[in-house]
Simulated scan of single mutants.
Amino acid sequence: MITRRAECSCSRLSATCSGEPFRIAVCHCLACKRKTGSAFGFGAWFRKGDVLIEGDATEFVRVGDEGSRITQGFCPNCGATLFWTNDKLPGVVAISAGCFADLSFPPPSVSVYHESRRFPWVEIRTKQLEKRG
């Protein structure tokens, strides 16, 4: 079974993930753009039992577009968001895929808010991409 480790910028907060993520997505919503300071968010979803979070995390809770409570866990030292949960998806934790710092990490298969909020210059190239919103 494959094991991957994601870390914040200063390495004080980490997530060790066992197995493959069941969903890998990019999200073009405004909250993800603000969270990452970039053109989109990039996350990998795992079952909570397959993820070991180590280190101290500060939490920030926001309400998503569909009314769910999203809790972001970020490093209190460097500020990098490492993971998040959604109260409408119990038992699931998403890891910021860029925190794996692994060029062989699998590509996204879902692009959320692809048509409505994606910067027009962003192209997501992958063999099978489900475009939502």
Rank of each mutant, 00 (worst) to 15 (best):
R4S: 10
K33Y: 06
P106G: 06
F100N: 05
S11P: 00
L82H: 05
P120A: 09
G41I: 00
E20C: 02
S11M: 09
W45I: 05
R5S: 10
P108V: 01
L103E: 13
T85R: 15
K131W: 01
G133C: 09
S96Y: 03
G73P: 01
W45A: 14
R117G: 05
A6K: 06
I24W: 10
S68G: 12
A80C: 13
W45K: 04
L52N: 10
A15N: 04
I95T: 04
A80E: 07
R12L: 15
K35L: 11
K131I: 07
L52M: 11
S109W: 02
V122M: 08
R117S: 14
A6L: 09
A31Q: 06
C10E: 13
V93S: 02
A15Y: 07
W84L: 14
V112I: 15
V112H: 03
D65C: 04
L103Q: 11
F119D: 13
V51C: 04
R62M: 12
F46H: 14
K88M: 13
K33V: 03
I70N: 11
P90I: 03
F60H: 15
F74M: 12
I53A: 11
K131E: 15
A25D: 12
E123A: 12
S11T: 15
A80F: 07
H28A: 13
P108F: 02
F74R: 07
E66A: 15
C29R: 10
V51F: 00
P106Q: 07
R23A: 13
L82A: 05
V63G: 02
R4Y: 03
K131F: 03
G64P: 03
V110C: 06
T126W: 01
P107V: 06
F42I: 05
S38M: 06
F83V: 03
V112D: 05
K33R: 15
V51D: 07
P76D: 09
R5V: 15
A31H: 12
P21C: 06
P106Y: 02
S116E: 10
R47V: 06
W121R: 01
I2N: 11
G79V: 04
I124D: 12
V93D: 01
L103H: 05
F119N: 10
R12E: 14
G43K: 00
K33I: 07
G37K: 10
V26R: 00
F40V: 03
E66Y: 07
K131R: 15
V110F: 04
L89N: 04
S18I: 09
S104K: 04
D65M: 09
E7D: 09
P108S: 02
A25I: 01
G55C: 10
V61E: 13
R62H: 14
A57Q: 13
T36I: 01
C17S: 07
D50S: 13
S104N: 10
V112W: 02
G55E: 09
C78E: 09
E59V: 12
I24Q: 02
G41L: 00
A44C: 08
R12Q: 14
R62Y: 12
L103I: 08
W84E: 14
W84S: 09
K131L: 10
Y113T: 04
R132T: 12
C17M: 03
S116V: 10
T85M: 09
R47C: 08
F100D: 08
D65V: 05
